[in-house]
């Protein structure tokens, strides 16, 4: 039996998308293993750990994507810039 991934119908953009998220999660795991962080309170209404903030950042990005697609006709690369800024803001000050 051979194991193929053809049925998954990979494309380059989705491969980049999935690997980015997986890499972020792995990097977060390594970082938190080496130097565990405390839960703290930022501008978000709940106290969060860096893992929580990464999750909120990614989930928020998904909603930004839907709003961008559903409500506007701007180019997607602008959204990419917005999303990266959003995740950085949440990670640092959230």
């Amino acid at each position: 039996m051979t194991l193929t991934l053809e049925w998954m119908e990979w494309t380059v953009p989705t491969a980049i998308f999935c690997s980015t998220i997986i890499l972020m999660v792995i990097a977060m795991t390594i970082w938190q293993t080496i130097s565990p962080s405390l839960e703290r309170r930022g501008f978000l209404p709940i106290p969060t750990t860096p893992g929580d903030r990464l999750f909120i950042g990614i989930l928020g990005s998904a909603y930004l994507f839907f709003a961008w697609i559903g409500l506007t006709h701007f180019a997607l690369w602008i959204l990419l810039v917005v999303v990266v800024c959003w995740i950085i803001v949440v990670m640092v000050w959230g």
């Binding site: 049925w7 998954m8 119908e9 953009p13 989705t14 998308f17 999935c18």
Partner: peptide
């Protein structure tokens, strides 16, 4: 991840898809 892949393609059958 498969669902993510499917969501950006038009798929008629195995190996027949357009981005």
């Amino acid at each position: 991840m498969t669902v993510i892949n499917y969501s950006v393609q038009d798929i008629w059958g195995p190996g027949q898809s357009v981005f």
